[in-house]
Amino acid sequence: MKITSNFDSGNINVISAEAPLDIQLEINRDNESEFFQWFHFRLESTPFVEHKLHINNLQNSAYPEGWDDYQAVASYDRQTWFRVPSSYQDGQLVIDFEPECHHTYFAYFAPYSYERHLDLVYWAQSHDACRVETLGETLDGRDISLLCVGEPGDEKKKIWITARQHPGETMAEWFVEGLLHKLLDDEDPHAAALLSKAVFYIVPNMNPDGSVRGHLRTNAKGVNLNREWQTPSLENSPEVYHVLNKMHETGLDLYLDIHGDEALPYNFVAGSEGIPSYDERLATLEAQFKQALLTITPEFQDEFGYPKDEPGQANLTVASCAVGEAFKALAYTIEMPFKDNANLPDPHYGWSDRRSYQFGQDTLAAIVNVVDNLR
């Protein structure tokens, strides 16, 4: 029996693996950080034998409540990821599984590899409407890639979308993949309507270093990028530094920052009602956008989410709040679950890469309903 995580986004520490029913594991912390929750590893063992994989010390993980009612995902071909029986008690997640093949991959959510990220960026570049711009480099020397979609024009709205500030939230890049496939479809009416009125600036992966390293929440230096937007620096957060500079260069009328939430089994949005410049105009735009999503897809809801900030009490280190305040623009954090959508449960796949992809396409359609009112 062999367990390894020596690959892109891999993360696990093997305590002991002497018998199939007594496999003891722990998750490694993000580099220079106390955050840990993301796991991704491969089990090589005997098929059709019951295995019990115990992931320990989870009471000290970043979001212990995220393990309640959580089911891990597994794959034989690294293409289709399905849920496997998992139970959580006293800081330990137990995955009870009888593999059908000699090799099985396990992960916290369907991974989105760095190679797939590169494939997405340069697939997009092959379309006439899209060009790729390298804004700078990460601390590990990877490109910070921006996709510019549409023909620039002073009269056009500037729509910005960023994803995977927190690298373990892989559903965010699946979301962007779906959105891009719709936006770059020459025969899609939503795309045509939007590109006649707007230019899109899309960062599919804000944190490629953390993604490759198998981090949950931080970059190579252990910095949480979504707390850097007030004073980003080249030393600690070049990813935010370069993106924010580009936003100021292009201007911005709408900002969506795409994330995943460990604990809440719903899709929801978090607005910027606590920023100093929040007014009736922004409140109306928020309501229009949410109503459009509610109409377009039953995957979205507006009952469960984060508590709203009191007026003037927004955390301006957070991307959606910082950008909303800086540009006086509609700015939302979009959250998807690691577990399942409790309103539309799927016992076999839970919330998944494919559903995230579709939610990205649905969100693009919702933008049509607000684009004329952005300024």
Rank of each mutant, 00 (worst) to 15 (best):
L330D: 07
E173K: 01
G178N: 07
L58I: 00
E50F: 11
L139Y: 07
W67V: 05
N219T: 06
A110Q: 05
E151M: 14
N205R: 10
S211E: 00
V94G: 01
A163T: 08
D302F: 10
S237V: 13
E115A: 13
I161M: 09
E173T: 14
Y70P: 05
D69P: 06
T231A: 13
F7M: 01
Q313H: 12
H117D: 09
D30K: 03
A326N: 09
W174Q: 00
A129D: 12
R355K: 11
I296S: 01
Y70K: 05
D279V: 11
F109K: 01
I15N: 00
V323N: 04
D261W: 09
Q230P: 06
K2L: 15
P167I: 07
F35P: 01
W81E: 01
A342Y: 05
V132W: 04
Q361I: 13
A62P: 00
R142L: 14
I95G: 03
Y70Q: 04
L179I: 08
I202D: 08
E303Y: 12
S87P: 01
K328I: 11
I12M: 05
D140W: 05
D279S: 11
A124I: 09
H103F: 15
E187W: 09
Q89I: 14
N219S: 08
S75N: 03
N224F: 02
Q24K: 13
L234R: 03
C130S: 09
V132I: 12
G150I: 12
K290T: 14
S113P: 00
R142M: 11
N11T: 06
H40A: 03
L254K: 00
G312K: 07
I367M: 08
F7Q: 05
A107G: 01
E303T: 14
K157W: 04
P311M: 05
A263G: 07
S5V: 10
N13I: 14
V73Q: 03
D69K: 13
N245R: 13
P204C: 08
A191I: 10
G141L: 01
D96E: 11
G168E: 02
D143A: 13
S45V: 05
A322E: 03
V223C: 07
G350M: 04
G150F: 09
L135C: 11
D90T: 13
R116N: 12
